[in-house]
C-alpha cells in the first residue's frame, strides 16, 4: 500500500533518512558476520581484528540513529503509523547493534581457534551464517516494504537456526567425549554457534516489531504452537 506523503516535507525527509540509515547499519552488520565466519573458516585473525575495530562504527551509527528517532519523537510527536514506525526503528537499531556485538564475539573466538589446529572442517556454521545474514536482510526488507509475509518467513527461519544450533552442539559433544584435548576448541565453536543462534533471535525480534508496526498487534513473547 502506497503511503500518502506528509504535508511537512522535512518530516517526510527525516523519516526517509532513518530508513536509509537502518538499511546501511543492516548492511554493516551483515558484512561483519560474514567476515567473522570467513576469519574463522579461512583462519584469518587479521580480518577478525578488523571486525572488532570496526564495531565502533556500528555502535556510533546506532547511537546516531537512536538520537535521530528521539528527536522526531520530541519535535514531531508522531502518532499512529508514524509512532509505530519510530518505536520500531529504535528497537531495530538496538537489535542491529547487538548483532554487531555478536560478530565481535565470533571474531574473538575465531582468533582463539586460529591459534590451534582446526578441530574439524566447518560445514554447518557457514550454512548458519548464510541463513542469519539472509534473516537480517529479510527482516529489514520487511520493515522497509511493510511486508508481513517476509517477517513471518524470518520467524520460520529462526526455528531452522535453533535446530542447526542443536545439531552442532550434539556433534561437538561427541568430539569432546572422544578426545578431551578437543574440549577447549569444541567449546569455542559451540559459542560461535550460540552467537549465530542469538543473532537469529535478534532478527526475529526485528520481524516481531515489524509485524507490530504494520498491524498494531504485539506478537512478541507469544509461544508458538508445537506441532
Amino acid at each position: 500500500m502506497e503511503e500518502k506523503r506528509h504535508t511537512s516535507l522535512h518530516y517526510e525527509k527525516e523519516l526517509q533518512e532513518i530508513k536509509n540509515s537502518l538499511i546501511y547499519l543492516g548492511a554493516l552488520t551483515e558484512k561483519a558476520i560474514q567476515d567473522a565466519m570467513k576469519a574463522l573458516s579461512e583462519r584469518n585473525s587479521e580480518m577478525a581484528n578488523k571486525i572488532i575495530k570496526d564495531d565502533d562504527d556500528i555502535d556510533k551509527l546506532d547511537t546516531e540513529l537512536e538520537e535521530r528517532c528521539i528527536r522526531v519523537l520530541a519535535l514531531r510527536q508522531p502518532t499512529a503509523i508514524d509512532l509505530r514506525f519510530i518505536t520500531t526503528a529504535i528497537k531495530i537499531t538496538g537489535h542491529l547493534e547487538r548483532i554487531g556485538d555478536m560478530a565481535v564475539n565470533i571474531a574473538e573466538k575465531a582468533i582463539q581457534l586460529n591459534q590451534e589446529p582446526q578441530l574439524k572442517p566447518y560445514i554447518d556454521l557457514p550454512r548458519m551464517t548464510d541463513l542469519v545474514t539472509t534473516m537480517i536482510k529479510d527482516s529489514l526488507d520487511s520493515f522497509i516494504n511493510n511486508d508481513l509475509e517476509r517477517a513471518e518467513k524470518v520467524r520460520r527461519m529462526e526455528e531452522v537456526i535453533d535446530d542447526l544450533n542443536e545439531q552442532i552442539f550434539r556433534e561437538l559433544l561427541t568430539f569432546m567425549m572422544e578426545d578431551s584435548k578437543s574440549i577447549h576448541r569444541a567449546l569455542l565453536i559451540m559459542q560461535v554457534s550460540k552467537n549465530m543462534e542469538r543473532i537469529a533471535d535478534h532478527t526475529k525480534g526485528i520481524a516481531d516489531m515489524v509485524t507490530y508496526m504494520i498491524t498494531g498487534e504485539n506478537v512478541r513473547h507469544q509461544t508458538r504452537e508445537i506441532s
Partner: peptide
Amino acid sequence: IFTNPDVKQTEDYITGRF
C-alpha cells in the same frame, strides 16, 4: 485512535498526511 486507528482516513489526518 492515536496508536492504531481502524480507518485509513483517520490515520492520514492525525499523522499530518496530504
